[in-house]
Amino acid sequence: MRIFLLVVGTHLALWAHPHFFIDTTLRIESDRIVHEWMFDTLNSKLLLFEFDTNHDHLLDEREEKNFLDAHFYPLQSNHFNLVLQKGDQDERIEPLHVKANVVDKRIVILFTTLFSPTQPSIVCTIDGTLYSAYTLQNVQSVFAIETQKSNYDFCLGVTP
């Protein structure tokens, strides 16, 4: 039975898209943005089933690395689902201090991007490949912001 389910699951994986609902919190500081991505409860359960190999409901160092290697760093090809535009120019996106942990049974990714909006700028968290939905839960900013959000993504106009 177990083998049957694995075969079915593997077969379906060839045809289907993975997807995640991610609650997002941003803190925009003068020279950086701190991002917090909290995965939904169901996907967190499934991901912990896969990556929490010692079943302690936490991600230890090795489990955290395996998780980030599978579900965060591959997003580099899609600019980590971020758009940072200063004026009309796209900024290079390089996440720093990337961490993953578990809070209230939900997986959370924390990271920082360097960004100094010296002119009107745009900050978006959006998956152009349509696999993930990002919901803006909270934003703190040292600059004036204008928010445009849907159930799937959000953009902030940042005015220094």
């Binding site: 699951g9 379906l12 289907a16 898209h17 993975p18 997807h19 349509l130 696999y131 799937y152």
Partner: peptide, 10 residues
């Protein structure tokens, strides 16, 4: 997991 692979909310 199988259900998740089928669903596509976006």
């Amino acid at each position: 997991l199988v259900y998740r692979l089928f669903a596509h909310p976006v």
